[in-house]
Structures are given as C-alpha cells and as structure tokens.
C-alpha cells in the first residue's frame, strides 16, 4: 500500500499546491486521448515524477496491480464482440490507448501520495478553497486521516466478535446489517465525544497552519502544468 513516507526527495520539497496543480493538469492531458508522440512524452514525464519521489516503477505497478488488472479487463471486454469476427482489434486498441493514459495518471498520483504529509495537504486545501468551506474541508480531511485507523480497528473488532459467534454462517445481508449498524453506532458515539472535546478546546474558524511558500522549483512545476493543460489542443 502506498502512503506518505518521510524523505528528502525533490518531490518532498515542492509546495503541495504546485503538486496538486500538476496532477490535475497531467490528468487533463493524459485522459484526453493524446496522439502517440505526446503520450510518449507523458510516459517519460510520469517516469520522471516517480523518480523525483524516489519511487520505483515496479513497486508502484505492484501496489496498483488490481486497478491495472481492471484496466486490462476493460481492454479485453472492448476487444471482444459477440458474433464473428469475435475479436474487434480496432475497438480494443482504442480502449487500450485510453486505459494507458489512465494508468499514467495513477502513477503520477502515487508520487504525490508518497511525498505529501497530511498537514501540507490540509494547508494546501485551505489556501486553495477560500473562506469557511475551505476551513471545514481542511479540518475534515485531517479528522478523516486521524480516524480511519481507529474505525478500521473498530470494524476489525466487530468482525472478530461476529466470527467468534459463527457470524460467517449468516447471510450476506445479515452480516452487512450487523457490521454497518455496529460500525455506525460506534462512529457516531466517537463523533459526539469528539464534538464535545472540540468545543471544550475552543474549536475556532481561524487556526494556525504551517506556512506554505513558493520556491523557484514550484514555479517550474506550475509552468509545466500550464503546458500540460494545453495538450488536448495539440
């Protein structure tokens, strides 16, 4: 599983806003079904992005084996036709072309995930989305990061308790009901305790965040993003 890892790579040093802009621009370029030459340039660029975050391509490909497997399945389903000639190569190639671009976008986002801690993402969100919605979004994102491991443990406990009582013999619907109702009850109890704690600690609209600053490298990344956005026009 790919998650944030502390390091001192080029990608780690970049401003999170520049990295977000680059990813969106790259996605716009890659899913617009560019011709083969721009697609080759994008492939090299994606490789460079992975290396800049000290990620080896085989590691990312292995980590994303299921999404990539589903992309390959799409190509296969597109190529198969019902009735002769059974295989429509042109249809398959068209989907493979599109699926390749989608794969590149996944590679680039893996570099962001490895190189950006949550507090930087939060600061970037709050500086990009103005006002109260941005603040709520920023705080909410850090709460989600904080509580996913806690709630995953809750779900694990509930599943263990069900398994110990032969819950695995129950129907799928019954298991889903027990798991989701117990999970939701626990999550809402935690949420209500959290809201009391937040208010007790004067939860405010104007917290102090880590300062973000643009360096020359961020300017270059932004420039590259602007170029990438124009790829669909080529």
């Amino acid at each position: 599983m790919l998650t944030y890892e502390p390091d001192e790579t080029v990608a780690h040093a970049l401003d999170p806003r520049a990295k977000l802009a680059f990813q969106v621009a790259f996605a716009v370029a890659a899913i617009s079904r560019p011709a083969l030459a721009p697609l080759g340039v994008l492939s090299l660029l994606a490789l460079g992005v992975l290396l800049s975050a000290n990620l080896s391509p085989p590691r990312v490909l292995f980590g994303y084996r299921y999404p990539f497997g589903i992309l390959c399945l799409s190509v296969l389903i597109a190529a198969v036709t019902i009735g002769p000639p059974w295989i429509d190569l042109a249809d398959g190639v068209r989907t493979a072309h599109a699926a390749y671009g989608v794969g590149l976008v996944l590679l680039v986002s893996a570099a962001y995930v490895r190189s950006t801690p949550v507090r930087h993402s939060r600061a970037a969100i709050q500086s990009l989305v103005p006002g109260t919605p941005g603040r709520l979004l920023g705080i909410g994102v850090s709460l989600v990061f904080r509580f996913v491991p806690v709630l995953r443990r809750d779900i694990g406990t509930i599943r263990d308790a069900m398994a110990a009582r032969l819950g695995t013999e129950r129907s799928a619907t019954e298991r889903a009901v027990v798991l989701s109702s117990r999970g939701l009850t626990r999550a809402f109890v935690r949420a209500d305790r959290l809201s009391v704690a937040l208010q007790a600690r004067c939860f405010a609209w104007n917290p102090t965040l880590p300062p973000l600053s643009f360096a020359r490298a961020d300017g270059l990344v932004l420039l590259l993003s602007v170029v990438l956005v124009t790829v669909p026009l080529w």
């Binding site: 709460l143 996913v148 999970g183 999550a187 949420a191 209500d192 809201s195 937040l198 405010a204």
Partner: peptide, 22 residues
C-alpha cells in the same frame, strides 16, 4: 468559535467519511 449546530453534525460527517474509508 464554531457553533454547536455545526460542530456536532460536522464531527459526525467526518467520522462517517472515515468509516466509509475504513
């Protein structure tokens, strides 16, 4: 300060998002 009418449902919304991920 963020009023209670926002803190309570907001905490529930954030935890439900985390649960959807969990």
């Amino acid at each position: 300060l963020v009023p209670e009418s926002i803190v309570r449902p907001f905490a529930r919304a954030a935890l439900l998002a985390a649960l959807t991920g969990a």
